[in-house]
Design a protein around this nucleic acid. Structure first.
Length: 876
RNA sequence: GCGCGGUUAGCUCAGUGGUAGAGCACUACCUUGACACGGUAGGGGUCAGAGGUUCGAAACCUCUACCGCGCACCA
C-alpha cells in the first residue's frame, strides 16, 4: 500500500486517473452487452463553445448518473458530441476574420468562406471536449458525434424531403422575424422581448377632402411611414366613423392612402388610429390583407431605409432614420407631440439587436404530432423533473405556430431544394421546385436554394440519429435527458415531436419512440447579485481556473451541494472551496486509517465485537444509504451531496473516529482490529457512494486501500447492513453528555487544551464501561463516575439524561451562579411551553398519541433538570 | 394581462402539519499523536405581510407586496 501524501493534490491525481480510464476504455458502451441499458445523450455544446459553469453543472449531473448506473451494473452509454450552431459559429468566424484579416464573408464568397469555417473549426473548435475531460466526464468519446457528420447531414436532408412530401414542410411568403445584423430569418423562439424606452410620436395625416383638417396617428416607428398604405380605426369608434372610406395624405412621401375600419384596432390606444404598414408589422400585415392594402417595403435586409422618394432618409440606418423622420415631420408641422413611451421590442437571441418583422419567402414546418407530444408528458410516459415544467411545455404546444426553418446563413445544412426557370432574383417569384436528397437529374438547369436549415432542425434528431441501428436497439429510448430549462422549446419539445413522428425505436409503440423517459431540468447558475452569467457582464468564472484551484472533484461536489433541483443557483466561489475542503477531509481521514496498518480488501465486520459507537456509525451509514437512494430517485443531487457531507464529516470524522481512537491507540488488540475493520467498512462504502460525485479522489483512495482489484467505477454501491441497532439512544445521550461537559469547560473560560477533571453522577454500568472514551472526548485528566459525588461550592454543573456532569475545578462562585440562573431560566421557559401545551385539552385529545407522549416525556425531563439545577444553585 | 417559481440567521440555501436547521461569515478557546482546506464551544430568526383552516402552520388555503422567469400584448 502506497503511503498517502500529507495533502491531496488533485493536479497530479486527476489527470492520472482520467488517462487510465480512457486507456482502459472504461467509458465505452457495448451494444452487445447483456446488461440492462442506461443511456444519456449529451446536449451537444456548440463547436465554438468554451466550458461555462452551466456546462459544468449539466455535465457533472450526467456524469453522476452515468457513473452511478455503471456501478449498479447497467451497460451505460453516455453519448457526447457537438453542434455546428449555424448562426453562432458563422458569427464567431466572421468576427475572427474581420479582426485578423479584415475581410467579411462577402469578400470571400460562399465557397471560400465555408472553407475558412472548416479550417477555423479544425484549429479552434471543440476545445470544450478537452475541457469536459478535465472535469472527469465519463462519456463514450469513441462515439463522439457532430451535427455535421456525413451520416447526420444525410439524415437531416432525408427528413426534410420526407416532411416535404408529407406536405408538413412548405415554402411560403409570410411575416417572419428578421435579424438585420445576422441578416437571416429567425424562429419565434429566437426572439426575446425586452421593454425599451422610446417615444410615441403623434403624426398628423391631412384629410384629403377636408384640407386643413388632420387625422392624428400615434406611432413608435415614424421611420416606417413611407410604407404606410392605409390608416385604420375601430368600426365602432364614433370619432372617426365619418372618415372611414375616405382618404388621407400620407406625410412621407405625400400620397393618398385610404382610411379603413378594422376590429383589431384598440380605440383606447393613442388616438385610436393605427397607421397600417403591412410590410413591417405582423398585425398591420393582417389588417392590410383584410382590406387589400398594398405591401410596400422600405427597409433593406441590413436595416437601412430604402426609399428614394424621401432622399433625407434613403440609405439611413433604421434608428437614425427614426430621429430624422421625426425632425422632418416637425419641420413640416406634421408632428403634434412626442411622449416618452416604454414598449416591448423583440430582440434577436443571437445578435442582440431588435428584429424586424418582414414579409419574406421562407420554408416552414407545420408541427406534426403535437397532441401526442402533449399526451406523453401529461400521462407521464415522459416524466419531467421538476414537475412544473410540464405546464410550460403544455402552454407552448397548445399555442404552437409553424416553425420557420430556413436561415439565410451559409454555415449549416443546405436546404435540399432546387429551382428552375426562376425568372427574377426576387425570392417571391414562383418557379418549379425540386426537393430531394440527390440533386435533380439535370443539374444544369436547376439552382439549389441558397439557404440553410435552422440548427435546431438538425438537433431535434440528436436523441437517435447519433446512434447506429444496433446501438439504437439497445439504448433507445434514452433513460434521461439532462438540460437547462431555457431550451425546453428549442430542443426538448422538438425532440419529443421528432421521436413520435419518425419512430426510430424498435417497434411502432409510443413507449419505444419517445426520445427519453425522464427529463431533468437543471437550475440556471447566476452570480451573487442574481444576474445571469454572461460574457458581456464578465461575471462568469472560468471553470478551468476553478479546477486548477480546487480540483475537478472539489468543483463538482461544491457545485452539486448548492444545486437544489430546479432552483436557480447563486454561485459563490466559497462553495467550491468547501468542495475542495471536503476532498481534503476525506483524504485525511483515510490517511488516519492508513497509519494504523493495511486494510483488508473486502472489509468484514464481526457483529459481536462492535463498540456501541461502531454500531452507531454503521446504523447512520444505513440511514445515509436510504436517504441517498430516495434522493436519486427524485434527482435531488444536493440532498445526496449533503447527506454524504454530513455523514463523512460529522458522523464519521467528528464522532466515530474520535471515539474509536481509544480503541485504535489502546492495548486491546481485538478492540483495535474491530475499530479498524469498521473504518475500512465505512471508508469502502463512503468511497463508493461518493464516487459519482468525486470520481478521481475516490478512485485514488480505493486503489491505495486496495479494496478490490478492480476500478471503483464498477464496484457495486454498498448495501445496508441492517444490524439491530439497540444502542442508538445511548450513544446519542453520551454525545449530549460530552457536549454538556465541553460547554462547562468553555463557559468556565478554561483553555480547551488544558486537561481537567470531570465527574459524572451516575451508576449506570453501560456508561461506566465507556469511561475511557468519554474521558478522551472531554479531554479530561480524570473522569469520576459516582452517583454520590460531592462537589465543592462553585463547581460548574450541567444536567443531562445520563446524570449531572460536573467540572471539578473551583471557579468564581458568582460567575457560576450567573450561568446557573441563565440555565434555569432557559429550562423554565421550555418547561412552561410544554406544560402550556399539555394543559390544552384539545391538544391532548386530538394530537397523535406519540406526539402527546413526546411532550409528556419532555415535561418530565425538564422538570427533573430544573429540580437539579435549583438544587445546585442552593448548594452554591 | 395570463402562467410558473421564489421571499427562512449577515450571506448561500435545506426544511410536505408536532422542540426552527446546515455551511460560510462572526465571537472565544485550541498549532492535542488524520486534517488550520482543521478542532471545540458560542452568539445570531415576528420563517415577506395580512387573513383563514387546524388542538397545533415556516409548511395547507385566500389575498397583498416585492424579486426572477416564461407566454401574450406591444400603434
Amino acid at each position: 500500500m502506497a503511503e498517502l501524501s500529507k495533502t491531496y493534490d488533485p493536479r497530479t491525481v486527476e489527470p492520472k486517473w482520467y488517462q487510465r480510464w480512457t486507456d482502459n476504455r472504461d467509458f465505452e458502451a457495448n451494444a452487445s452487452s447483456k446488461k440492462k441499458p442506461f443511456s444519456i445523450v449529451m446536449p451537444p455544446p456548440n463547436i465554438t463553445g468554451v466550458l461555462t459553469l452551466g456546462h459544468v453543472l449539466n455535465n457533472s449531473i450526467q456524469d453522476i448518473l452515468a457513473r452511478r448506473a455503471r456501478m449498479q451494473g447497467f451497460e451505460v452509454l453516455w453519448l457526447p458530441g457537438m453542434d455546428h450552431a449555424g448562426i453562432g459559429t458563422q458569427t464567431a468566424v466572421e468576427k475572427w476574420l474581420r479582426k485578423n484579416e479584415g475581410v467579411t464573408r462577402y469578400d470571400l464568397g460562399r465557397e471560400k468562406f465555408l472553407q475558412r469555417v472548416l479550417e477555423w473549426q479544425d484549429k479552434h473548435g471543440g476545445i470544450i471536449i478537452q475541457q469536459l475531460k478535465r472535469l472527469g466526464c465519463s462519456a463514450d468519446w469513441s462515439r463522439q458525434r457532430y451535427t455535421f457528420d456525413d451520416n447526420y447531414v444525410r439524415a437531416v436532408e432525408k427528413i426534410f424531403v420526407d416532411l416535404y412530401k408529407k406536405k408538413l414542410i412548405y415554402r411560403g411568403r409570410r411575416m417572419i422575424n428578421w435579424d438585420p445584423a445576422a441578416q437571416t430569418a429567425l424562429s419565434d423562439e429566437e426572439v426575446i422581448n425586452k421593454p425599451q424606452r422610446g417615444s410615441l410620436y403623434y403624426v398628423r395625416y391631412e384629410i384629403v377632402d377636408q384640407p386643413g383638417k388632420f387625422l392624428e396617428v400615434a406611432t413608435t416607428r415614424p421611420e416606417t411611414i413611407m410604407a404606410d398604405t392605409g390608416v385604420a380605426v375601430h368600426p365602432k369608434d364614433k370619432r372617426y366613423a365619418d372618415l372611414v372610406g375616405k382618404e388621407v395624405w400620407r406625410p412621407l412621401p405625400r400620397e393618398k392612402i385610404p382610411v379603413v375600419a378594422d376590429e383589431a384596432i384598440d380605440p383606447e390606444f393613442g388616438t385610436g388610429v393605427l397607421k397600417v404598414t403591412p410590410a413591417h408589422d405582423k398585425v398591420d400585415f393582417e389588417v392590410g390583407q383584410r382590406h387589400k392594402l398594398p405591401v410596400l417595403d422600405v427597409l433593406d435586409p441590413d436595416g437601412k431605409i430604402n426609399c428614394p422618394a424621401v432622399p433625407e432618409l434613403n440609405g439611413v440606418d433604421r434608428f437614425e432614420a427614426r430621429k430624422r423622420a421625426a425632425e422632418l415631420l416637425q419641420e413640416r408641422g406634421l408632428l403634434s407631440k412626442t411622449e416618452p413611451y416604454e414598449n416591448n421590442v423583440g430582440f434577436s437571441d443571437r445578435s442582440e439587436v431588435p428584429i424586424e418583422p418582414r414579409l419574406s419567402e421562407q420554408w416552414f414546418l407545420r408541427y406534426p404530432r403535437t397532441k401526442e407530444a402533449l399526451a406523453v408528458v401529461k400521462k407521464h410516459l415522459i416524466r419531467f423533473f421538476p414537475r412544473h415544467w410540464e405546464k410550460v411545455y403544455a402552454q407552448w404546444l397548445e399555442n404552437i405556430q409553424d416553425w420557420c426553418i430556413s436561415r439565410q446563413v451559409w454555415w449549416g445544412h443546405r436546404i435540399p431544394a432546387w429551382y428552375r426557370n426562376q425568372k427574377s432574383e426576387d425570392r417571391g417569384q414562383k418557379s418549379e421546385i425540386y426537393v430531394g436528397i440527390e440533386p435533380p437529374p439535370d443539374p444544369g438547369n436547376w439552382r439549389q436554394d441558397e439557404d440553410t436549415l435552422d440548427t435546431w432542425f438538425s438537433s431535434w434528431l440528436w436523441a437517435y440519429e447519433t446512434m447506429d441501428l444496433k446501438t439504437r436497439k439497445k439504448f433507445y429510448p434514452t433513460s434521461v435527458l439532462v438540460t437547462a430549462p431555457d431550451i425546453i422549446f428549442f430542443w426538448v419539445a422538438r425532440m419529443i415531436i421528432a421521436g413520435l413522428q419518425f419512430k426510430p425505436g424498435k417497434s411502432q409503440k409510443i413507449e419505444d419512440n419517445i426520445p427519453f423517459q425522464d427529463v431533468f431540468f437543471t437550475g440556471i447558475i447566476r452570480d451573487k447579485q442574481g444576474r445571469k452569467m454572461s460574457k458581456s457582464l464578465g461575471n462568469s468564472p472560468d471553470p478551468l481556473e476553478l479546477i486548477d484551484k480546487y480540483g475537478a472533484d472539489g468543483l463538482r461536489f461544491g457545485l452539486m451541494r448548492i444545486a437544489p433541483s430546479g432552483q436557480d443557483i447563486r454561485f459563490d466561489e466559497k462553495q467550491i472551496e468547501e468542495g475542495r475542503n471536503f476532498a481534503t477531509k476525506l483524504w485525511n481521514v483515510a490517511r488516519f486509517r492508513q497509519m494504523h496498518g493495511p486494510s483488508s480488501a473486502a472489509p468484514k465486520i464481526d457483529k459481536k465485537k462492535l463498540s456501541i459507537f461502531a454500531v452507531e456509525i454503521l446504523s447512520r451509514l444505513d440511514q445515509t444509504i436510504d436517504v441517498i437512494d430516495t434522493a436519486y430517485r427524485d434527482y435531488q443531487f444536493n440532498v445526496v451531496a449533503q447527506a454524504l457531507y454530513t455523514f463523512v464529516w460529522n458522523d464519521y470524522c467528528d464522532w466515530y473516529v474520535e471515539a474509536a481512537k481509544i480503541d485504535v491507540f489502546g492495548e486491546d488488540e481485538a478492540k483495535k482490529q474491530s475499530a479498524l475493520a469498521v473504518m475500512d467498512y465505512v471508508l469502502s462504502a463512503v468511497l463508493r457512494l461518493l464516487h459519482p460525485f468525486m470520481p478521481h479522489v475516490t478512485e485514488e483512495l480505493w486503489s491505495t486501500f486496495g479494496f478490490s482489484g478492480e476500478s471503483i467505477q464498477f464496484a457495486s454501491p454498498p448495501k445496508k447492513l441492517r444490524l439491530p441497532y439497540p444502542s442508538s439512544r445511548l450513544t446519542a445521550a453520551i454525545f449530549d453528555l460530552i457536549r454538556a461537559g465541553r460547554n462547562l469547560r468553555a463557559k468556565a473560560g478554561l483553555s480547551s487544551s488544558y486537561k481537567v477533571k470531570f465527574a459524572l453522577r451516575s451508576d449506570d454500568q453501560e456508561i461506566t464501561a465507556e469511561r475511557p472514551v468519554i474521558a478522551h472526548l472531554l479531554n479530561a485528566s480524570e473522569l469520576i463516575i459516582d452517583p454520590k459525588f460531592k462537589a465543592g461550592p462553585g463547581t460548574p454543573i450541567a444536567t443531562t439524561s445520563l446524570g449531572e456532569i460536573l467540572l471539578v475545578v473551583e471557579v468564581d462562585r458568582s460567575a457560576e451562579r450567573e450561568r446557573l440562573e441563565k440555565e434555569i431560566a432557559k429550562v423554565e421557559l421550555e418547561l412552561s411551553t410544554v406544560e402550556e401545551k399539555l394543559k390544552s385539552k384539545s391538544f391532548v385529545d386530538r394530537a397523535p398519541r406519540q406526539v402527546v407522549e413526546l411532550h409528556r416525556q419532555r415535561q418530565k425531563n425538564f422538570a427533573e433538570q430544573l429540580a437539579k439545577l435549583k438544587q445546585a444553585r442552593e448548594q452554591l
